[in-house]
């Protein structure tokens, strides 16, 4: 394959890294909230850490740029579902401050 002057693989790799960073920031924010919510909060916080770690494992190959360029990978649904999972875990964390 000739070198792509548009640097598409590099741009895509950087986009994955940015997303991993954003996911990490969200996980840290969720963990901070979890640690102020008692024992149930700490349990949810552990789930947050697991989700974050799982998403990182799923996207690592993409962000590191190893392997051939290919469409259709489990990294995409994995990171999307982890993100939605973080949002859903955060809802009871927010509501626990009310009740």
């Amino acid at each position: 394959m000739t070198r792509d002057p548009g640097l598409q693989p590099e741009r895509t790799r950087l986009a994955w890294r940015r997303t991993a960073l954003a996911l990490t920031v969200v996980a840290v924010l969720a963990l901070r909230l979890a640690l102020t919510r008692g024992v149930p909060g700490a349990l949810l916080g552990a789930a947050v850490v697991l989700l974050w770690a799982g998403a990182l494992v799923a996207l690592w190959g993409r962000a590191a740029g190893r392997g051939p360029v290919r469409a259709g990978t489990r990294a995409l649904p994995s990171i999307a579902l982890s993100t939605a999972g973080l949002a859903l875990l955060s809802v009871p964390l927010v509501l626990r401050g009310v009740w």
Partner: peptide
């Protein structure tokens, strides 16, 4: 799009805290 979603989630978490 995913980062857009993450930004909204971060906004929610920041609002709560």
């Amino acid at each position: 799009w995913l980062r857009t979603g993450l930004a909204l989630i971060a906004g929610g978490l920041a609002a709560a805290q």
